[in-house]
Lab assay of single mutants.
Amino acid sequence: KRPMNAFMVWSRGQRRKMAQENPKMHNSEISKRLGAEWKLLSETEKRPFIDEAKRLRALHMKEHPDYK
């Protein structure tokens, strides 16, 4: 399984929150809205998620050196 990218790290928490606030909303609609919100974030707002994704990628490479 591939490590999560920055968007996936961010959206994991956001998706849960949005699903709780809008229980009838379909997952595909939640995904569209999350994608639009992510695009509006500044580089500074994205930075912690980018850093976490880098950390996860490095850990994955260490644990699975033969993974392509």
Rank of each mutant, 00 (worst) to 15 (best):
E63S: 09
I30E: 05
K32C: 07
E43K: 05
E29D: 10
V9I: 11
H64L: 13
H60E: 15
K32D: 06
I50K: 14
E37I: 05
P65Q: 14
V9Q: 03
K24H: 10
R16N: 13
N22E: 06
K17R: 11
A58C: 09
R47D: 04
Q20C: 08
M4V: 15
S11M: 04
E37L: 07
G35L: 14
I30Y: 04
E52D: 04
S28A: 11
I50A: 10
K24Q: 14
R2P: 08
E43C: 05
E21Y: 00
R12W: 13
E63A: 11
L40I: 07
A36V: 07
S28Q: 11
R55D: 06
K17Q: 09
R12D: 14
Y67E: 12
E63I: 04
Y67F: 09
E45M: 05
A58T: 11
A53E: 06
E43N: 02
P48V: 04
L41T: 02
K32M: 09
R55L: 05
G35H: 08
L59S: 12
S31M: 15
N27F: 09
R15E: 12
R16I: 13
K1C: 10
M25N: 03
E45L: 03
A53T: 02
D66V: 08
M25C: 05
K1Y: 04
R16Y: 08
V9R: 01
A58W: 07
I50L: 08
S42F: 01
V9F: 02
K46F: 00
P3F: 05
R47I: 05
E63K: 10
L59H: 10
S11K: 00
R16V: 14
W10N: 09
E21S: 04
W10V: 00
M18C: 05
S31L: 08
A36S: 08
K1L: 12
E29R: 01
E63C: 05
S11W: 00
P65G: 12
L40Y: 03
S42N: 08
E43I: 09
E21D: 07
A58E: 10
N5Q: 04
S42W: 00
A6E: 05
N27P: 12
I50D: 05
A6L: 00
L41R: 01
I50Y: 15
P65K: 13
G13Q: 11
E43Q: 09
M18H: 07
L59D: 14
M4W: 07
Y67P: 14
W38P: 02
E37T: 06
A6D: 01
R12K: 14
E52V: 01
P23I: 05
P3G: 11
L56E: 10
R12N: 13
Q14G: 04
E45C: 03
S28C: 10
L40Q: 14
M18N: 00
S11H: 00
Q14H: 06
K54H: 08
G35Y: 15
M61L: 13
T44H: 09
P65Y: 11
E21Q: 09
D66P: 14
A36E: 15
H64C: 13
S31R: 05
S42I: 01
K17N: 09
L34M: 04
L40D: 09
A6V: 00
Q20M: 10
K39C: 09
L41N: 03
L56A: 07
S11C: 12
N22V: 02
M4I: 14
K54R: 11
E43V: 05
L40E: 11
Q20Y: 09
P3R: 08
K1I: 03
E29Y: 00
P23T: 06
D66F: 05
N27I: 05
K1R: 06
K32Y: 05
K68Y: 07
N22F: 09
M61F: 08
A19Y: 07
G35S: 15
R2K: 10
K54L: 09
N5A: 03
W10D: 05
K54C: 10
A53M: 01
L59W: 10
A19E: 15
L56G: 06
Q14Y: 02
A58N: 12
A53C: 04
F49T: 00
K32F: 09
P48D: 00
T44Y: 06
P3S: 11
L34R: 01
N5K: 02
R57W: 08
E45P: 01
L59Q: 11
A6S: 03
I30D: 02
R2W: 05
R57E: 12
S28E: 13
E43W: 07
R2C: 12
L41E: 03
T44A: 13
P65E: 15
G35N: 11
K68V: 11
H60L: 09
K39G: 08
K39V: 09
L34H: 01
R47H: 04
M18L: 13
D66G: 10
E43P: 11
